[in-house]
Simulated assay, not measured.
Amino acid sequence: MRIGVNVGHFTGRPPRDLVGKVRALDDAGFASLWFAEAYGSDVFTPLAFCAAHTSRIRLGAAVAQIPARTPAATAMTATTLDHLSEGRVVLGLGASGPQVSEGWHGVPYARPLARTREYVEIVRRVLARREPVAYDGEFFRLPADPDGLGKPLRSSLHPYREALPVHLGAEGPRNVALAAEIADGWAAMFFAPAFDDFYRAALDEGFARRPGGRPAGFEVVATVPVVIDDDVERAADRIRPELALYMGGMGARGANFHHDVFVRMGHGAVAERVQELYLAGRKDDAAAAVPTAVVEQIALIGPVGKVRRDLDRWESTVVDEIAIQGLPDDVAVVASLL
């Protein structure tokens, strides 16, 4: 099991001594370093910053928001960064949700799977640079040609790698199947080893639609909260507020895909209670309503020995790499899990 780190997106301000921390991860042998974006810090600037201060570690977007950029702009950024990092980039893409897509970017969210399919196809064409890119889709048209002046173009920058890996962020089974069908990997969130069969079936459905089946090198990278602490309950308390945010406060009632994950896991009553409390402004009560058993299903918490034993549950799943959520407090301790 490979171990990486997903820093996520910055809230408030960037972490202090980011240079020292990412260099420590690079030196310690962590497999990868990922960043995310929501409606504050972007995903690519930190990756470029870290490319300049590391030499070995993979650098991934987990994920770049599809509504935030045109497909060509995303491909331009990814291939530029791939050159500057000497081939260490993984481009993770995700549809985000209606609140961010429509409320922040002003882009309609309707039919996200169909939009994602077109987006990935254009990104791949730009990255491959085999011919000028022309595309006539439902959501994207190149050239747009409202006045007859546009023409198909080919990137002036040659790719460092034509096959730069593209991952899809997905939670629901249809989206997971789409990742297996059109991408090089799945960026998983709130993955629970106990539901490995469910996700394995979704992946197999997508691979069955793909010419040639599962491609060599397809990988599953799961972002997982990890808290090393001799007190399990205290460790769970570190994670409960964020789970409450995602379970109860992301999106609107009836349109929260993170909430739906926990419902599918059989925690419908918990998810409903957490959502009620969170949307009522009772955030502390919402966090307290998340049982430790639920935390332990999607996180690794407790003393080092317990975390190592719990990590064994992941070894037989579809997950190839765990990306620890957040910068570790003690890199040396977490590195002992490698």
Rank of each mutant, 00 (worst) to 15 (best):
D147N: 13
V107L: 10
Y160Q: 14
P159C: 10
F195P: 07
F190R: 06
H167I: 08
W186G: 06
E131D: 14
R161I: 14
V133Q: 00
A188V: 05
V176N: 07
E131C: 05
A177M: 07
A170V: 13
G172W: 02
L149E: 14
V176K: 07
I122R: 00
A110L: 11
P173K: 07
D196P: 05
A187P: 02
V100G: 10
N175G: 09
S155N: 08
A179G: 09
E121P: 02
W186Q: 03
A170P: 09
L149I: 11
E102D: 13
E102W: 10
D147R: 13
R117N: 03
R124F: 02
L157G: 12
L91Q: 07
P143T: 14
D147E: 14
L142N: 01
A134F: 08
R129Q: 07
H105L: 14
R115P: 00
R129L: 01
G103H: 11
A180D: 03
A163M: 11
V89Q: 05
V107Q: 11
A114K: 03
E138C: 09
A187T: 10
A163Q: 15
A144P: 00
R154G: 09
R161M: 09
S155A: 13
V126S: 02
V166N: 01
S96Y: 08
Y119D: 06
G94I: 04
A179F: 04
Y119Q: 04
G169D: 07
L142P: 04
P193F: 00
A110E: 09
W186F: 09
Y135D: 01
R174F: 06
R124E: 02
E102Y: 10
A180H: 04
T116F: 00
G185Y: 09
A183R: 02
A180L: 06
A180P: 05
G92K: 05
V176T: 15
G150L: 07
I182F: 01
Y109F: 15
V89D: 05
H105R: 14
H158N: 14
D196V: 02
A192W: 00
V90T: 15
L127N: 00
R115F: 01
Y109R: 06
G92R: 09
R115L: 03
R129M: 06
E131V: 12
Y160E: 14
D197H: 12
G185C: 13
A110F: 05
A179V: 11
D184G: 12
E102Q: 15
F195A: 11
G106H: 10
A194T: 13
P98Q: 14
G148T: 13
R161D: 12
G148K: 08
G172L: 04
D197M: 02
R111N: 08
Y119L: 09
A163F: 07
R115H: 00
P193T: 00
G169I: 06
D197R: 12
G172V: 08
D184F: 01
G169Q: 04
A95M: 06
L168V: 08
E162R: 12
Y160P: 09
Q99P: 13
P98M: 13
G106S: 10
A134S: 15
E102M: 13
A170N: 06
V123F: 07
T116W: 00
G150R: 13
P193N: 02
F191Q: 06
F190M: 10
G185A: 12
A114E: 10
P152V: 12
V120Y: 00
L149V: 13
V90Y: 05
A179P: 01
